[in-house]
Amino acid sequence: MSEKEILLTPQGLKKIEDEYEQLKTVRRKEVAGRIKEAIAFGDLSENSEYDEAKNEQAQVEERIAKLEMTLRKARIIDETQISLDIVNIGTTVKVKDLEFDEIVEYTIVGSAEADPYDAKISNESPVGQGLLGNKVGDVVDIQVPDGTIQYEILEIKR
């Protein structure tokens, strides 16, 4: 079974690398210090500070392992090679919702860096999949859990 690659923009890679470094160099030491402090309180069988610190340590180590796996599988999108003729991963697309007459912009990214609050949608999401491969002027119907959205593609940029 081959591992599925994880698509990242250069900005997404930097964000993951920064989080990874912070967890390894700062958070790991903080949690180890809390464990050491809790051990000093004595009896570990009824030591809630120790239990909390050990749980936090497990969470930090799990996140570090997840980030390492992401970095190992990462394929960086070369933004200079992205065609602006069609919607692709790494492009920002301005669309008009034809039902509500609203204009919105989405950046299409790999699932690892999707952040709907920052208008970064995954290429694997219904809207991301529906926009991929279309060009300016196209009207696309996209199936979403609530029904169908109809977008007109107004602009594609980096």
Rank of each mutant, 00 (worst) to 15 (best):
P145R: 08
K15Q: 11
E17Q: 14
V87W: 10
V139M: 09
M1D: 08
E19Y: 01
I82R: 15
A112C: 02
Q59S: 09
V109D: 04
T107V: 01
Y20M: 10
V95F: 08
Q22N: 08
E17H: 00
R63Q: 12
P126V: 01
R28L: 13
D85Y: 08
S48K: 11
L8V: 06
I103M: 06
E68Y: 01
F100Y: 12
G137Q: 08
Y50I: 06
N134L: 07
Q129M: 11
G110P: 05
E68R: 05
A32W: 00
S48Q: 14
T70R: 11
Y151E: 05
I77A: 08
T25G: 05
P126G: 02
D78N: 15
V136M: 09
V104G: 00
G42D: 05
K4G: 00
V136H: 05
I153Y: 09
I76Q: 05
S125W: 05
Q81L: 15
A38N: 11
E52V: 02
S83I: 09
G42W: 00
E52Y: 09
L44G: 13
P10S: 06
I153D: 10
P10D: 06
K66A: 15
E155K: 15
S45D: 15
D118H: 11
K54P: 00
D97F: 10
K36Q: 13
A112F: 01
Q143N: 14
P10Y: 07
I39R: 15
I108T: 07
I149P: 02
E49N: 13
P116A: 03
A32Y: 03
E30P: 01
I16V: 12
E99N: 14
G128L: 03
S48Y: 09
I77L: 13
Y151K: 09
I142C: 11
I121S: 00
Q150V: 14
S111R: 05
E52H: 08
S122E: 03
E68C: 05
K29W: 02
V136I: 15
D101I: 04
F100L: 09
I89P: 02
E19M: 06
E102S: 03
N55Q: 14
I153F: 11
T148A: 10
V87G: 04
D115T: 00
R63T: 09
G33C: 07
A114V: 07
E68G: 02
R27Q: 10
P126L: 03
Q59K: 14
G33I: 08
N123A: 11
S48R: 12
Q81C: 04
K29C: 00
K14G: 00
L154N: 04
L44A: 08
V95W: 02
R63E: 14
D115C: 00
I64A: 04
G90N: 07
G130E: 03
I142W: 11
L98I: 12
E5A: 08
A74Q: 13
A38D: 04
P145S: 12
L7Q: 10
S111G: 00
K4S: 11
L132S: 08
S111K: 07
L98K: 13
V95S: 07
E79F: 10
L132E: 07
M69V: 06
A112K: 02
Q150E: 14
R158D: 03
